[in-house]
């Protein structure tokens, strides 16, 4: 049987984390293809709905990448993202999606290395955890 490959939906901020992913690429760093990147203009525009929908549709993990506090292109979008992540984590935890499946990380545009590290780390962690409890529940459940 082949090894379990987690699906990770990643929302990356256009100004930092997405640029870091770009940098990782041009630096020829390879990171696991389990990370499916969705570019957003700011981590602060990641509506809780996007996270819920990803999990309900069977994502094994959700990663949000934003600018370090103080570096937000829109002043404080990342701080709003952090509060929302705390809120949604509290909700998901009650029904079996723990915080180990839902990450927020600050990754600056210059931190291509860190992007690779976070991607490696999260993929490894989810491989260890196994599929999301919502995997293959199908569209009947949601």
């Amino acid at each position: 049987m082949s090894e379990f490959e987690p699906k990770i939906v990643a929302f990356f901020c256009n100004w930092c984390t997405f640029t870091a992913a770009d940098l990782a690429g041009t630096s020829r760093l390879s990171y696991p293809p389990n990370i499916k990147i969705i570019r957003v203009m700011c981590s602060g525009m990641v509506d809780p709905k996007y996270v819920l929908k990803a999990f309900l549709n069977g994502a094994d993990g959700v990663l949000i990448g934003g600018c370090w506090p103080g570096d937000c292109h829109y002043i404080n979008g990342n701080l709003k993202a952090r509060r929302r992540v705390a809120l949604v984590t509290e909700l998901l935890k009650q029904y079996g999606i723990g915080e180990e499946r839902f990450w927020l990380r600050w990754i600056a545009a210059s931190e291509g290395n860190m992007l690779k590290e976070v991607a490696d780390e999260m993929t490894a962690k989810l491989k260890q955890l196994g599929p999301s409890p919502l995997q293959n529940k199908g569209q009947m459940a949601v």
């Binding site: 929908k53 309900l56 549709n57 929302r84 199908g138």
Partner: peptide
């Protein structure tokens, strides 16, 4: 397209999604 993903789709859909969103 949604139905295609698992071969079926409960309708109306997004029931659980609605309640969870309301909670947020």
């Amino acid at each position: 397209m949604w139905a295609d993903k698992d071969g079926m789709l409960k309708m109306p859909n997004d029931t659980l999604f609605y309640h969870l969103t309301r909670i947020t």
